[in-house]
Design a protein around this nucleic acid. Structure first.
Ligand SMILES: [Mn+2]
Ligand SMILES: [Mn+2]
Ligand SMILES: [Zn+2]
Ligand SMILES: [Zn+2]
Lengths: 152, 152
DNA sequence: GTTTTTTTGATAATGGTTATTAAAAAACAA
DNA sequence: TTGTTTTTTAATAACCATTATCAAAAAAAC
């Protein structure tokens, strides 16, 4: 058995990431391939610790440092979006490696990608009104997910 | 000489914070008053280290831990907004202790409060589309401030 | 084959923040 | 006032996700 329920979109992201690694003259090692596959397949914005756990399930000798370095590398070549949190436990999105809004549950820390229109205009408005040259942005909504609302 | 260029708005914020401390049954110590005044007066979203330095200028025996605890206390009673960054160096806004957008210079780390319309609607849209009960949000724009653009 | 470069794995170091705790200050009681 | 209780401070140790270091392993180049 090779792949367990890899969606066509995830498969596509895997190809893109592999291509970008290759074109950037980085080697595709088993460890990198494992990390990359998890990032491409997961919709859950996993943390490094979670990626580490998954990788070790099929590649038990992998080091935590290697996971950190691989995630950082993928971030540097623009194939992974990092969601940094000051209370540690950063989260990563390998599906949409560009700025987009997130909804974060304050209780269970679940993170989703909401569909949201009319946001791209804001950067232009920023440029005009502040004189800053806007290069990126981050928009997080905090609240309670449906599951945690039920429990409350 | 008592106050050096305290604007009426800052003075107002000071009164509000003092009142909130009192009504929450916390004591108004010289250390807390010093931290509070800096947060109310500064438009620069200072870090704890910067607040610490300012406080020590007029109150040299103050401990760093006290500054941390005071800032945290003011945050807990809703009188200060915390802007956490995962690379340490969190920043604080004592003027507008409610969610509002920020523009951050990626070079000099200057942070401003831009005027920005049409954002409050987004929370409602989030509620509808995601099922999350939205309680807060954070919107940061990253770019280069006018000064750093000149130098580039 | 040998040499050179890249990558890994193990572990030490980093640094902003938090926890701890004894001393000081303030509030309270008699 | 004097003693008692509660809160706050100051100093410092602990925390912990991340980063740095570096020798060993793997891959590429020769
Ligand atoms: Mn996402
Ligand atoms: Mn602000
Ligand atoms: Zn939840
Ligand atoms: Zn700047």
């Amino acid at each position: 058995m090779n792949s367990r329920n890899i969606s066509p979109e995830a498969q596509n992201r895997i190809e893109e990431m592999l291509a970008k690694l290759k074109s950037s003259d980085f080697r595709i090692t088993p460890q990198r391939y494992a990390v990359l596959r998890i990032l491409a397949a997961s919709e859950e914005h996993p943390s490094v610790a979670e990626i580490y756990e998954s990788v070790r399930a099929e590649f038990p000798t992998t080091s935590l440092a290697t996971v950190y370095k691989t995630v950082s590398l993928l971030k540097d070549i623009g194939e992974v979006l990092e969601l940094g949190f000051h209370d540690g436990n950063n989260r990563y999105d390998g599906n949409r490696p560009f700025p987009h809004p997130h909804v974060i549950c304050m209780q269970c820390r679940k993170i989703m990608d909401p569909e949201l229109a009319g946001l791209d205009d804001l950067s232009a408005e920023m440029n005009r009104k502040t004189g800053y040259k806007i290069l990126s942005h981050r928009l997080d909504f905090y609240g309670l997910c449906p599951d945690c609302q039920k429990l409350a």
